[in-house]
Design a protein around this nucleic acid. Structure first.
Lengths: 166, 166
DNA sequence: ATCGATATAGTCAAAATTGACTAATCAGAA
DNA sequence: TTCTGATTAGTCAATTTTGACTATATCGAT
């Protein structure tokens, strides 16, 4: 759901059409996410179906029509929910593309802090688990060591973020 | 291609059938990759089509037949190529699931070292680029800072790995 | 004014991925 | 022994994702 979070978050700032959204993401968030154009349109259509956003077709001359999207009241509620979920959950497979960070400033620092505390707990647990993997399991020692390092970096980062907020 | 690299690498060690492969990956490499069962079978079929592996159907009583896979000579060549590509390339979107590490010990330390040197160069370049992003670009400062940290961790890790090998 | 190159805006068929399923076997409890 | 739940082995339809495409507009050079 973090792609939906991103699209909602951007549209909440400014109404945009599909191409514009995709361009923005491609220019400013490459390091964060790789969202292909057709996927963006696909997600937008799905979100429109669910009533999270509405489309306004604008015809200009002979051009292909542009569909500008606006976040609905329901979409706003979904954004709020997704943002909180994203911040509180520890997604084990990604230290990159932490979309929630982009919209952290839309929350009260105290609430943001509480959500990150939940995440930190899960992160700590995983780090302990990884450190507890016996040497002669089927998994590669290098892979485990590598992961432990990034988990530690993530933990340090969260610690600092939490401190900044509190 | 790193899923193919993984499957080839595992099959190169021991012949296995699809379910076995999936189980092994799921038990020992969760932190590394999330390969769903149907995707595993899909990839195996594709690899068999390309002649990288061969299937041997074994019927046992009334069971659904098991297809045991073996790496062909061509598959072995592809494995060697994919491993080298994987080690030398800096994949910007993942600090997790570095499959190449699992099979690093199949190379001569000196060659492994050379490949990782290429990767380190690309990594350094990205870190510089990320650090050079102006504060008032469209991207979130937190996201950039977050990425820079993990890139630095990755760089330190590579430095150490390279030293260990040289 | 016109030609080519690039930017804008979106679509589509083909390929890949997934959740949910079938179906047989096995291990232990009643 | 027979029932139940877990394990083994793989498949399938529906959903998602992608590369390649259409088509107009715009901008700079000739």
């Amino acid at each position: 759901m973090e792609r939906e979070l991103l699209l909602l978050g951007l549209l909440r700032r400014t109404d945009m059409h599909g191409y514009q959204l995709h361009e923005f993401i491609n220019q400013n968030m490459v390091s964060c996410i790789d969202l292909k154009k057709p996927t963006a349109y696909f997600l937008l259509e799905k979100m429109a179906d669910k009533g999270w956003i509405t489309q306004t077709e604008t015809h200009e001359g002979n051009r292909p029509p542009r569909r500008v999207y606006q976040v609905t009241a329901e979409g706003e509620r979904v954004f709020q929910r997704l943002l909180r979920e994203n911040l509180a959950e520890h997604h084990p497979a990604r230290f990159t593309g932490d979309i929630g960070l982009t919209f952290l400033d839309t929350l009260l620092p105290s609430e943001a802090r509480d959500l990150l505390l939940v995440r930190r707990a899960a992160l700590r647990e995983e780090l302990e688990n990884v450190r507890a993997i016996p040497v002669h399991s089927g998994s590669s020692q290098l892979v485990i060591e590598h992961r432990a390092r990034h988990l530690q970096t993530e933990l340090d980062w969260l610690d600092e973020l939490i401190e900044r907020l509190g």
